[in-house]
Write a protein that binds this DNA or RNA. Structure first.
Length: 590
RNA sequence: CGGGGCGUAGCUCAGCCUGGCAGAGCGCUGCGUUUGGGACGCAGAGGCCCGCGGUUCGAAUCCGCGCGCCCCGACCA
């Protein structure tokens, strides 16, 4: 590609709306353009990177036995009603109507469509196992797009779906995808760590997220400092710090004027926060049935986790109660008590509560609390479950080590869906014994643009982007100096361009009539891994300067050796993108 | 959906408070001089000042109502 013809220009200043370094660099380098909130165009440079990421993904999916398909984005709404996810996805699902007023949805994911496809085309156990994948556009009407390309409304996702005859088969398919994911992230130069995750609205049991750790992340992750346990806080198990021990004492009322928060209460009574019970209230909407009020209780030194709570309630939708609802259900904000809660209020207690004697809890009267409240003796929950959020400093449930926390962005997610969709769509194939077999499913997603953003986030410096060699828009950039003043140099540059191209390299030839400084700075900004400088000075000496983007100095290479030298640098750069190396970086980041 | 900020040239921003010719730098076009890390001169092009309504002799500026974008929160396969 001749740069004089490349569509799109670099900006000399950073655009204003960009928050993260990666977003700013992608805009400034002319990779992407924002059309509206959460919707981006890809210019030629950005599109090249996107395609290269997709190439890596396709290679690894194929290696793992996946077969590429193409599923429609335009989907009948009935499919979503059938799976029961029309309600579950809520406003995130883009919906529209055709001219015949038929309800349609723009696919936010493709479990429904692929399950239906499988049902129509798989006939017997001989069709198992099968892993189908695609790289396609997804649409999600996010409540708040943010972070440049991180949370958007239209994006590219590689999604794969496995169908197996039994658990062992699913385990094997899952493991194959898991390994493929490690290789994909490594090859794209994006350090990720796998963490235990909640499976959310997709359904199913057992899932892991591949998290890219960054301060700009929107997920909170905990990891153990002594074993390899890592989990999203939506899921993370932990050992609760011990309670203050003691025999149960008689309950007594105590005046606590103005102490409506745990911190105020503990300070007022001169006790520790872990000696109190904290109450949080939600309205729960089950998948079927009427909404009901929920009274969640955690020990005062912990926070209730909404996702864990929803799971403990069998996957209901939760929202915080409003003041009126608190009053309607006989609850006094700041002083609510699990003792004597009205019977229709569903009380959920965290695991810590049965183990914690003599807590201070609300008296259900403004300005009063109860001392020495004991679980079992004074009150009981409908449900006792892990509903508290892990915190840094808590102990690891696996090994007792200390948990640390970090922020991250989900790059990929692998799920064991099991029978969620094959049940919903009543899928069965004929087994070897003639009886029907219900396939068990897995699903596996990767955000292409998120990889692109993360790759920039970890690979940039003051000069601009330093693309991993595997996904750079070009393999090598040729900076021509003084081409208009020296015909011989111009001709030789053209020849070198042809030689590099013939060698299978993606070459960007900066043939523009610009000053050298402009070209060098643009080359650095765009982030091409290898830069060549062709000039009369070099031409006269029979050399070309070769500089890798990360090197501080260029080397002079004999003109005849240039193509080989570029290829050897490229090989060396690609060679670093191994699972071992990238995962070492990921762990260092945590 | 709650809270905050911002909408003026392709980009970064002045101008608005206190109403009176639409501005700067960068970028862009042409010519010339320059040419190894974002040159210089000369001449240019480029604007529904987010939209609609109102006040006023007169609105980028004041008032009202919208819309959009960004950030925090809620939400988030």
């Amino acid at each position: 590609m001749r740069m004089s013809r490349l569509f799109g220009h670099t900006l000399r200043e950073f655009p204003n709306e960009a928050e993260t370094p990666s977003h700013a660099l992608l805009l400034r380098g002319g990779f992407v353009d924002q059309l509206m909130a959460g919707v981006y165009s890809f210019l030629p440079l950005g599109n090249r990177v996107r395609l290269k990421i997709e190439r890596v993904i396709r290679e690894e999916m194929d290696r793992a036995g996946g077969q590429e398909v193409r599923l429609p984005t335009l989907q009948p709404i009935e499919l979503w009603e059938e799976s029961g996810r029309k309600a579950g996805m809520g406003d995130v699902l883009f919906q529209l109507r055709d001219r015949k007023e038929r309800g349609l949805a723009l696919g936010p994911t493709h479990e429904e469509v692929v399950t239906r496809l499988f049902k129509d085309h798989a006939q017997s156990y001989r069709d198992l196992p099968a892993t189908l994948y695609q790289v396609n556009t997804k649409f999600r009407d996010e409540a708040r797009p943010r972070g440049g390309l991180v949370r958007v409304r239209e994006f590219t996702m590689k999604d794969a779906y496995s169908f197996d005859a039994d658990d062992a088969g699913l385990d094997a398919s899952y493991a194959a995808m898991f390994e493929a994911y490690r290789r994909i992230f490594a090859r794209c130069g994006v350090p990720t760590i796998p963490v235990e995750a909640d499976s959310g609205a997709i359904g199913g049991k057992g899932s892991q997220e591949f998290i890219f750790l960054t301060e700009y992340g929107e997920d909170t992750i905990v990891f153990c400092d002594s074993c390899d346990y890592a989990a999203n806080t939506e899921k993370a198990e932990f050992v609760r710090p011990p309670a203050v021990a003691g025999d149960p004492l008689p309950t007594e009322v105590v005046d606590t004027p103005g102490a409506s928060s745990i911190a105020e209460l503990a300070a007022f009574l001169g006790i520790e926060e872990r000696q109190t019970a904290k109450a949080v209230f939600f309205m729960a909407t089950p998948k079927s049935g009427d909404p009901f009020p929920v009274f969640a209780v955690v020990r005062g030194d912990m926070e209730a986790n909404e996702v864990k709570l929803a799971n403990a309630l069998g996957g209901t939708e939760l929202r915080p109660m409003v003041d009126q609802e608190l009053a309607d259900h006989g609850l006094v904000a700041g002083y609510a008590s699990p003792i004597g809660a009205r019977s229709h209020v569903h009380v959920v207690a965290d695991l810590a509560l049965p183990e914690a004697p003599n807590l201070v809890a609300g008296a259900n009267e403004v300005g009063r609390h109860l001392r020495n409240v004991n679980y079992g003796r004074d009150w009981q929950a409908h449900t006792v479950a892990d509903i508290a959020t892990a915190q840094a400093g808590f102990a690891c449930a696996r090994c007792g080590g200390t948990l640390g926390m970090g922020r991250g962005i989900e790059m990929g997610h692998v799920f064991r869906l099991q029978y969620v969709y094959t049940d919903a769509f009543d899928v069965a194939v004929q087994g070897a014994d003639g009886n029907p077999v219900r396939p068990t499913m897995g699903c596996y997603g990767i955000g292409v643009e998120r990889i692109l953003s993360a790759a920039v986030e970890v690979n940039h410096d003051d000069g601009g982007i330093r693309w991993p060699a595997s996904i750079a828009p070009f393999d090598v950039v040729m900076v021509g100096i003084g081409l208009d003043r020296d015909e011989a140099v111009r001709e030789d540059a053209d020849r070198l361009y042809e030689e590099l191209t013939a060698a299978g390299l993606d070459v960007l030839f900066d043939d523009r009539d610009e000053r050298p400084g402009v070209k060098f700075n643009d080359a650095d900004l765009i982030g091409v891994p290898v830069r060549l400088t062709v000039s009369s000075r070099n031409h006269g000496a029979g050399v070309v300067e070769v500089k890798s983007r990360e090197a501080s100095e260029a080397e002079s290479v004999a003109r005849t050796e240039v193509v080989a030298r570029v290829q050897s640098i490229r090989e060396e750069l690609l060679g670093r993108l191994t699972v071992g190396e990238i995962e070492r970086q990921a762990r260092a980041g945590s």
